[in-house]
Each structure stands twice: as C-alpha cells, then as structure tokens.
Design a binder for these strands. Structure first.
Lengths: 159, 159
DNA sequence: ATTGTTATTTAGAATAATTAAAAATAAGAT
DNA sequence: ATCTTATTTTTAATTATTCTAAATAACAAT
C-alpha cells in the first residue's frame, strides 16, 4: 500500500521505518537510513521533507539529561482554577515562568497539568511560592516530585 | 553559574549556548553554531563530544506531532499501588505496554505517574481496561486526558 | 620562568546533504 | 490494451558538513 497524491498523503511503511530510525537518533545519515529501508537516499530525503511539510515532524532536538548538569528536581503539578474560563489567562502567566516546560489542558481532577524542572528543592520552593502561587486565577495546586524517570521513549510505530 | 560535573569539567557559557541552540534544532551545522558562539567549528565539536561523554546529551531525536499521524489521545495517569514495594514489578509490566511512553516514580498522591498515547478513545479504553488494569499490584488509577498541549519546551539555560 | 597539561584553532580528507534531471512506476481514460 | 499524465524513485553532480590530527596557544603548578 503506497502513498497518494499531493495533500492527501498517506504515511506508509517506508515513512514509519524512517521515522522510527530517526526518532532513535536524528543524526543517522540519510544514506544509512536508505540502506536499512531499501530505498535510495533521495527517497529518504523526499519522504522526510513531506513529513516535515505535513507537520508530523516539527524538527530535531537533543535528548537531555538535566540531572547531569545540576538540575535535579523534576516535578509535576496539578492546578485547580477558580473558574475554568480563566484557562487562557492563567496559562499565559505560567508561560512566563521559565522553569515550567510543559502545560496541558486536562480533563479529570485538575484543569491544568504541568511539568517543572528545578535545580534543587530550594529552587522548587521559590518557583512554587514566589511564582506559581502568585498567578491570578489559581485556586490551589498539588505537587508530585519525580524521584525517578523510569521510562522515557517515543511511541512504537510498529515497524 | 557553573556546574561541576564528574571529574573536574565545568559547563561554561559556551557549552550552554551550544546546547541551547542545538536543543532548538539539533541539525544546525557546527560551523553555524561556531559563528554564533564565536569559537571554531572544532571547538563546538569537542564540546559536544564532552557533553555526550558526560551524559548531559544522550543523543538526538525528532520533535514529533503524533496527532498529525492519527494518534489523537494523550493521557496522563496516576497509579495507586497496593504496596509501595511493588514498584519494580509493576513498572516492569507497564514497560511492556507500548502505548506508555513515560513512567515516573513520584511522591504525593500517586506512586507512579505515566503518560500514554492512543489513536482514539476506543484505543485508550482498550489500553486501560485490557492492559493497565490487569497489571498485578495496581490498586487503582486516575486518568487525565490532555485536551491541549499548551506548552512544550526545554528548560531555559539562561544564555 | 619552565614545564607539563589542557584547550583551541587550523586545514584537509572523508562523509553526507541537496539539487535537478532522468527513469521508473502507477492510474485513468478512451 | 495502449497512451497519457501524474507521481515517485533513482542517479549523478554539486555543495556543504563533519571528523581527525597536528600545531599552536593558554593556563596552572611548582
């Protein structure tokens, strides 16, 4: 089952295999990918360009281990809002806090779920008390400190 | 700010600037990084090698937008264990579930906090009911579905 | 100051990415 | 079925990047 015309592009096995390899290591040369997938280097190039245009691939980044550079605390936080309608206002404010790296709008217990990185517990305390708790519209928060990241992987593309 | 790591290598401003640029786009040529940081390409190469040896950088990966390939549901789940001592056993089992991409050992409400990607709600239901709830040692779980990823960035290295 | 150590630059060889054009393949219409 | 068109893949030439190692510079300790 191969791909289709222009906008209606279907992701096929070749695409998935290319993605799978590059998700492991984005710097594997296209020529090497090509050999493993049994297509030419040009094809890998064309496929990746297409996947980037589709927005499936938004770029490349480094896999970082912050703890190795003295950023020891990873924490999650569930946020209760005074009113759900305050979501935009509150997230706007949260985005200005550099220690916050992810924000999700969630169903369930909390309205907002976020992830924070801090150097140490003192730093975390500062962020919680001096920055997050001061944001208008937040009713209360619940913090979970990660003692260990036991797993961190991409989804399995099944190829 | 300088972080002392391992033997006696300190991460300096040059390292941080290099990291910062490559965290945005891991495929920026070292020569281009070099120009921006005012060092030679060779130096960028040496610094990156050192950062990789230190474990600060664990490799490169693609920034993916799973929703663009029909994986529409992102969910978080807090897990209560029957006994804390079951952590290793339970995470071992959870790792075999391909839809689970992150597992954290946490303080606070839950013992385990994890992240899941599924194609749709039906798929999520299958994962929850047929896979996760069947794991021995799990008392109960709480699920939060992400309706929007409002922010996704790396930490700010301040350079 | 001198020596030993570590960091940086330089330059060239090896490797990889990009591109444009040609070849191959697939789909549709008559 | 064959022709036509659209699309994808390959090929090959060009440009760009990475890697390596030797030379130089900077630094610290004595």
């Amino acid at each position: 089952m191969t791909s289709k015309i222009g906008k209606n592009y279907e992701i096929d096995k070749v695409d998935l295999k290319i993605l799978s390899l590059l998700m492991d290591d984005a710097k594997i040369p296209y020529t090497e990918i090509a050999k493993k997938v049994y297509v030419s280097g040009g094809t890998v190039h064309v496929r990746m360009k297409k996947l980037e245009e589709m927005g499936v691939v938004r770029g490349t980044t480094l896999k970082m281990d912050y703890s190795k550079m003295g950023v020891d605390i990873t924490a999650f936080m569930g946020v209760y809002l005074e009113k759900s309608s305050l979501y935009d206002q509150v997230t706007q404010a949260l985005k200005t806090i550099p220690e916050i790296v992810k924000i999700h709008y969630t169903t369930g217990n909390y309205s907002i779920f976020l992830k924070i990185h801090c150097r140490d517990t003192k730093h975390l305390r500062e962020v919680l008390h001096d920055k997050i708790q001061k944001v208008e519209g937040i009713e209360r928060t619940e913090t979970f400190i990660s003692l260990e990241e036991t797993l961190n992987r991409h989804i399995d593309l099944g190829v």
